[in-house]
């Protein structure tokens, strides 16, 4: 979102104003300002695979869910508004699961954007639904509650599965993102640690690995420390972790924890990353998609999920 990127927009606005001035109401309301942004990403946060050929994106400032084309990531196919600030998002069996930070709930929508029901009962039950992951075959939804600092587990239809709820309580410091390794039945959770610098001894930034029963299996901190770890994805023995401050996606070896590669670099230029917040990998093409928050774009790293 450099000033320069506003020049074409402004030119367009001036032209549009010139042509349509007489048709516009004299004063636009604040609400209209918001609505006009619905065809354009403003502050993309979390990503999820959607129906075929589509990626789902939550937009924190536009207060909307966008559906963008996997082949042309700049193309918004459809969007629908959320009443609040959406963060986590997931897709399973024709339903879209959206973490609404304002209402403190995971809301379930159909693809047309109609709200169906809420997970776990009353709004306010998931304080900060920062990220969501789903194992559709086992019918499980995993939700990061950033404020209660634990992972909540729900069934697809809504009930909280108390037997395995509350994963990570006590060991998670500031949990942010979540991904699943469905073959190994593992839950990976990124954690800022203490908000001070990432090497802080009180609690460094980490990726925690739990099994589906909530037992902690491992902790990964990379060969260099993470800075501000955000959303993550798993692909064939590698963890792809978006780091908001570094402006990179770190590719980590699942077993050794070493950083084996990186995607992208910090910057405000085309293709550079400023505050990347989530990663999705297409399992067949190995294309990697990243939300580039400040640039208000989805970046595509073709074949980036193929580690040499």
């Amino acid at each position: 979102m450099t000033i320069r990127s506003y020049v074409p927009l402004t030119l367009f606005v001036i032209l549009a104003l010139g042509a349509g001035l007489m048709l516009l109401p004299a004063e636009s309301t604040a609400a209209e300002h918001a609505k006009q942004r619905m065809d354009q990403l403003l502050s993309p946060a979390r990503l999820s695979p959607g129906p075929s050929g589509i990626l789902l994106v939550t937009d924190y400032c536009a207060q909307a869910v966008f559906m963008v084309s996997r082949t042309t990531v700049a193309k918004v196919i459809r969007s629908f508004s959320i009443n609040g600030r959406p963060l986590g998002i997931a897709w399973a069996r024709g339903r879209i699961y959206v973490g609404n930070e304002t209402t403190g709930a995971v809301e379930v929508y159909n693809p047309a954007g109609k709200r169906m029901y809420t997970l776990g009962g009353a709004p306010g039950s998931v304080k900060q639904p920062s990220d969501i992951a789903v194992d559709a075959s086992r019918g499980l939804i995993f939700v990061v509650d950033g404020q209660e600092k634990r992972i909540r587990v729900f069934g697809l239809k809504g009930p909280e599965l108390t037997a395995i709820s509350g994963i990570g309580a006590g060991s998670l410091v500031n949990p942010i993102g979540i991904a699943l390794d469905q073959t190994r039945e593992e839950i990976l959770v990124s954690d800022y640690g203490h908000p001070a610098d990432s090497s802080d001894e009180r609690a460094p930034s980490l990726v925690h690995i739990f099994d589906y029963d909530g037992n902690k299996i491992a902790e990964i901190s990379g060969s260099r420390r993470f800075s501000r770890p955000q959303g993550l994805a798993v692909e064939e023995g590698h963890i792809y972790l978006a780091d908001g401050m570094l402006g990179q996606v770190l590719v980590l070896d699942r077993s050794s924890g070493a950083t084996v590669a990186t995607l992208g670099e910090f910057g405000t230029g085309p293709g550079q990353l400023q505050l990347p917040l989530d990663v999705v990998i297409d399992p067949s093409s190995k294309d990697v998609y990243v939300t580039n928050n400040r640039a208000a774009r989805i970046e595509l790293f073709e074949g980036g999920g193929q580690v040499p």
């Binding site: 946060a45 400032c61 600030r85 401050m245």
Partner: peptide, 20 residues
């Protein structure tokens, strides 16, 4: 740009501060 990114790692979406 780096200062902005830094502030927003806490005060932006997914950040740890409640103030946005």
């Amino acid at each position: 740009a780096q200062v902005e990114t830094l502030c927003l790692t806490c005060h932006g979406p997914g950040g740890t501060s409640t103030l946005k």
